[in-house]
Amino acid sequence: MDTVVDMAKAIKIQAKDVNVFYGEKQALNNVSIDIEDRSVTAFIGPSGCGKSTFLRCFNRMNDVIPSCRVEGSIMMGDVDVNSLQTDPVLLRARIGMVFQKPNPFPKTIFENVAYGPRIHGLAQSKTELDDMVEDSLKKAGLWGEVADRLADQATGLSGGQQQRLCIARAIAVGPDVLLMDEPCSALDPIATSVIEELISELQQRFTILIVTHSMQQAARVSQKTAYFHLGTLVEYGDTKDVFTLPKNEQTEAYISGKIG
């Protein structure tokens, strides 16, 4: 596997020889990848190839699954994400996650965004908390729509608004990295394009890893694309190269719609 590193951008995360097992079954095979800082990296590949599994390695969400075992190193700066010494709770404050289905808590809009700052003790005063909530909602492009209804139940928002609320909720903790697992798959095309624009804006502040089944989406929002097949990283490079001149024939077959 050859990795093209654009020297203009620093490396944010470096994964080396990551293997993941669910019980006896191996789901990922020696995956190594360098993730660029402040860019969007898309993970694509057929269903069941291990994209979600790999994404969940970055914030140790696989810990939640009892049968799951992760080997290898994932360095973020000088922190090994996968080391036993690393506290997943602190790690997840630095690496936010947005899920496939919007999952706002059954609380008010305000309380949803304030949740992270509260549990991590980020705000010293009520005004500071208010500012954080407002700031996060603005970054998530939702402020205009909800500014006057912060006390409403979050479950009353539309699907697209809920997903942006989940993004705001993740941003509020102040992470450097955002993981997104098919964030638009439960949304209609208009809500999807809103989120895609948002991702392009967020890219200036955050390192974003996104799993998507939509080739067009990967092409639109990402700078780098990684193609997975049956638990291995088959191809990784600049998005425009992967989509125009795939080096690997499996990648080409997938992109042109022959597998998947």
Binding site: N59, M61, V64, V89, L90, L91, R92, A93, G96, M97, F99, K101, N103, P104, F105, P106, Y115, G116, I119, H120, C166, R169, A170, V173
Partner: peptide, 13 residues
């Protein structure tokens, strides 16, 4: 739903 628990864990709870 498990998704709520995942959401909470994902925020570092």
């Amino acid at each position: 739903p498990q998704s709520l628990r995942d959401g909470a864990y994902g925020l570092g709870s």
